[in-house]
C-alpha cells in the first residue's frame, strides 16, 4: 500500500513536470529578475546598477510622457470595454430572439473578433481611417467631404483604436449568447403574466441571471484592454503618435525596453502595470457582491 502511494507521488510529478519546470524557468525566474531590474539601471550591455527607487520616482515625478500614456490607456480602457460589452449583449439578445439563421449571423459577428488581433486587420484599419480611406470616401458620398486622416488627427486617433476594439465584440457575444440560452423561457412568461414589460423583464431577469457572465467578461476584457499593443503599434507605426495620442502603456513600455534599451525603467513600468491590473481586478470583484447574482443550486 505504502509503495503504491509513493508511486503516485512520482507519477504526479512526472506528468506535471513540464509545467513545473516551465513555471520555474519561464515565469518565476523572470518575475523575480524583473523585480530586481526595476530597482536598477540596466541597458543590457553593462551589468545592472542599483538605483533603489529611482525608476519609480522618475515615473511619477519626471516622465511627462508616462502621464500622457496613462491618460491615453485609461481613456481607451474605459471607453472600449463597456461599449464592447454593451454591443455584445445587445447583439446577443437580438440573435437570441430568432430561431433561424442564427449560425450564419453568429459567424458574421464573430469573424471580426476572430481576426481582429492580427497585423492584417490593423493595417486594414489604418487604411480605412486614412485620408483617402473608406470612411472619408463614404462621408463624401453622402455629402460631407472630409480629407483629414482620422489616424493622423490627434483628436480622433485614439478613437479609431476604440472603434477597432468595439468592432471585435464577437467573442463576448458568443459567451452572452450561451448564457441567454440557459435562462428558462418560463421566467419571462411568468413575468409577462404578472404584467412586467420588456424593460423590466430585461433589468429584473436578464441582467441578474447574466451577471456572473458579465462579471467574467468584464474582468477578462479589462485585463486584455490594458495590455493592447499590436493595433496601436501598427496604426502609429511604432511611435504612439500623433502627439502621443495612441501611446498605449504597452507600446510605451515596448519603446522604453526595445528602442531605448532602458530595461530597468521598463521593468518598473511593468510592475506598476501589474499593480494597476491587480487593483482593477480586485475592484471589479469587490463590487461584484453588490450586483452579481448567483443562483443557489439548492432549491
Amino acid at each position: 500500500m505504502k509503495k503504491l502511494r509513493e508511486n503516485e507521488h512520482i507519477t504526479g510529478y512526472v506528468f506535471s513536470a513540464p509545467f513545473i519546470l516551465g513555471f520555474l524557468i519561464f515565469t518565476l525566474y523572470p518575475i523575480l529578475s524583473s523585480l530586481y531590474y526595476s530597482f536598477t539601471n540596466y541597458n543590457l550591455m553593462e551589468a545592472p546598477r542599483w538605483l533603489g527607487l529611482a525608476n519609480y520616482e522618475r515615473m511619477f515625478m519626471e516622465d511627462a510622457k508616462i502621464a500622457k500614456s496613462f491618460q491615453v490607456t485609461f481613456t481607451y480602457v474605459f471607453a472600449s470595454v463597456p461599449l464592447r460589452l454593451i454591443f455584445a449583449l445587445f447583439v446577443a439578445m437580438i440573435l437570441n430572439a430568432s430561431t433561424r439563421a442564427v449560425g450564419l449571423y453568429r459567424s458574421a459577428f464573430y469573424l471580426p473578433s476572430l481576426i481582429g488581433g492580427s497585423v492584417a486587420v490593423a493595417i486594414m484599419w489604418q487604411q480605412i481611417f486614412g485620408d483617402k480611406g473608406l470612411v472619408n470616401s463614404f462621408l463624401s458620398l453622402i455629402g460631407i467631404p472630409s480629407s483629414t486622416s482620422w489616424i493622423g488627427n490627434p483628436s480622433t486617433a485614439l478613437w479609431t483604436l476604440v472603434a477597432l476594439s468595439i468592432w471585435q465584440f464577437g467573442s463576448s457575444m458568443i459567451i452572452f449568447l450561451a448564457g441567454l440560452k440557459n435562462i428558462p423561457r418560463d421566467y419571462y412568461e411568468a413575468a409577462s403574466v404578472d404584467g412586467a414589460n420588456a424593460v423590466s423583464r430585461f433589468f429584473k431577469i436578464t441582467i441578474p441571471l447574466l451577471s456572473p457572465i458579465i462579471l467574467f467578461n468584464l474582468t477578462l476584457q479589462t485585463i486584455s484592454a490594458f495590455l493592447t499593443f499590436t493595433p496601436a503599434y501598427i496604426i502609429s507605426r511604432g511611435e504612439g503618435g500623433p502627439l502621443d495620442q495612441t501611446l498605449l502603456y504597452s507600446l510605451y513600455l515596448y519603446r522604453k525596453a526595445f528602442s531605448h534599451f532602458e530595461m530597468g525603467y521598463a521593468s518598473a513600468m511593468a510592475w506598476i502595470m501589474l499593480l494597476i491590473v491587480g487593483i482593477f481586478t480586485a475592484l471589479i470583484f469587490k463590487s461584484s457582491t453588490a450586483w452579481v447574482h448567483y443562483e443557489s443550486k439548492g432549491d
Binding site: 519561464f26 523572470p30 529578475s33 525596453a257 526595445f258 521593468s267 501589474l274
Partner: peptide
C-alpha cells in the same frame, strides 16, 4: 502547483517580456 498555474494564467505578459528577453 495548481495555484501557481492559475496565477500564471492571470499574469499579464508585459511583466515577463523584458526579463525573458534578457534571459
Amino acid at each position: 502547483w495548481f495555484a501557481c498555474m492559475m496565477v500564471t494564467m492571470m499574469l499579464p505578459h508585459d511583466v515577463i517580456i523584458v526579463p525573458q528577453y534578457v534571459m
